[in-house]
Structures are given as C-alpha cells and as structure tokens.
C-alpha cells in the first residue's frame, strides 16, 4: 500500500488549528490568507500553547501539587505578560464561530 501524500500526513490537531486560525482571521475581517502566513500562525499558536502549559506545570510543581489550580494559570499569564482583565470584554465582543465538535467516526456495522 502506498503511503498517503505528504499533505495528508500532517497531524490532525494541526489541521484543526489551521481551521481555528482561518476562522479567527475571517472574523477579524480578512477574506483570504497566504499559505505561508497561515502556516506561520499555526506554528505560533502551537508554540504559545506549549509555552503557556510548561510555565503552568512548573508553577504547579513548585507548589508541590500535581493537580493544577487557577492560581497556577494566573501566575503563568503574569509571567508571559498577558493581561487577563480584558478577556471578559474579548469574549463578549468576539464574533468568531466555534468549530463543530469532533465526531468520532464509528466503524460501519457488518
């Protein structure tokens, strides 16, 4: 069996992130996006999430816990210089569509 083409080998989570970036850009007012810019933004959001989670985990472990609390996330936000006071306004004003939930494919019954 031949391997699928290179485009289809990419991670499914990256595909979802591509859809996320696209919908955010469309919500912002763009009509189209260059492939390079899209790939850069996908890389950026993935890097951002990993960085945030590593900082959160470190704060959590510093406190001697394995279960994360909101306090760890707040400390990580402060560490990364994120202003979380404007999140509330952001989600009220944001008009981005949320993606449809992931549906697990059932194997066909025989």
């Amino acid at each position: 069996m031949s391997s699928p083409p290179v485009d289809q080998q990419t991670n499914v989570y990256r595909k979802m992130l591509t859809a996320v970036i696209s919908s955010i850009c469309m919500g912002t007012g763009f009509d189209s996006i260059e492939k390079e810019a899209l790939a850069s933004l996908v890389e950026l959001i993935q890097c951002y999430l990993s960085e945030l989670s590593v900082i959160c985990k470190n704060y959590c472990e510093l406190a001697g816990r394995s279960e994360p609390l909101i306090a760890d996330i707040i400390l990580a936000f402060i560490d990364m210089g994120i202003n979380f006071s404007c999140f509330e306004d952001y989600i009220k004003n944001a008009k981005y569509p949320s993606l449809p939930p992931i549906i697990v494919q059932q194997p066909p019954k025989q």
């Binding site: 955010i24 950026l44 990993s50 989670s53 994360p68």
Partner: peptide, 29 residues
C-alpha cells in the same frame, strides 16, 4: 497540546481559559 507538555488540567474551564488566551493572542496579531 497541553498533555504533550505534561500539563493536564481536569477542569475544562481551565482549558478554556488557556484557549481564550491563545485565541486573543492570534486575533490581536
């Protein structure tokens, strides 16, 4: 993505808070 970094919040609200942070970052850009 959080699990690959070794961080696993059980409360979905914490996940959503992080998602919103990332979403805001991208939409600002």
């Amino acid at each position: 993505i959080l699990r690959t970094s070794g961080f696993e919040p059980k409360d979905p609200r914490l996940l959503r808070l992080i998602s919103i942070a990332a979403q805001k970052f991208i939409s600002d850009i």
